[in-house]
Amino acid sequence: MTPARRRRAPPKTEQPYVPGTLLDWTSSKHWDYERALPCRYCGFDTQLRDSHGKAAHKVCAEDALAAQARDAAAAYRVRSH
C-alpha cells in the first residue's frame, strides 16, 4: 500500500505588499556609476540596475513582481476551481 500524498494548504491570508521591502539591492552591483538609463518600467532615468543588468528603479521592479504574483495567484485560483 502506498501512502497518500498530502497537499500543502494555501496560506490563510496574503501578506500586504509594502513598497521597498521585497528586494535587497544593497550590493553595489545594482548601481551603474557610468550613466543613467531609462527605467524599463516607468521610463524615467535611473542609475539602478536589476539582477540582469537592465535599468530599473527598485520600487518599479518590486511593483512589477507584486503584480506578477497577484496575476499568478489569480490564475491559480481560477484553474483550481
Rank of each mutant, 00 (worst) to 15 (best):
M1S: 12
M1E: 13
T2C: 00
T2S: 02
P3S: 15
A4I: 11
R5Q: 12
R5W: 04
R5G: 10
R6D: 15
R7S: 12
R7Q: 13
A9C: 05
A9V: 08
P10V: 06
P10Q: 07
K12Q: 07
T13W: 12
T13L: 09
T13E: 14
E14D: 15
E14H: 08
Q15W: 00
Q15E: 12
Y17R: 02
Y17L: 09
Y17V: 09
P19V: 09
G20K: 00
T21L: 07
T21K: 04
L22P: 07
L23I: 12
L23Y: 02
L23S: 07
D24S: 08
W25D: 00
W25F: 05
W25Y: 10
T26S: 08
S27C: 06
S28V: 13
S28G: 11
H30C: 11
W31K: 09
Y33C: 04
Y33P: 08
Y33G: 11
L37D: 11
L37E: 13
P38I: 03
P38G: 08
R40M: 08
Y41R: 15
Y41D: 14
C42V: 03
G43C: 01
G43H: 03
T46I: 11
T46D: 08
L48N: 00
L48G: 00
L48D: 00
R49Y: 07
D50P: 04
S51W: 12
S51I: 14
H52C: 03
G53A: 04
A55F: 08
A56K: 10
H57G: 05
H57D: 06
K58A: 10
K58L: 11
V59C: 03
A61S: 08
E62Y: 03
A64R: 05
A64L: 02
A64W: 03
L65S: 12
R70P: 06
R70M: 12
D71E: 12
A72H: 07
A72D: 09
A72Q: 09
A73N: 13
A74G: 12
A75F: 08
Y76D: 12
Y76R: 14
R77G: 03
V78M: 09
V78T: 15
V78W: 06
R79W: 03
H81N: 14
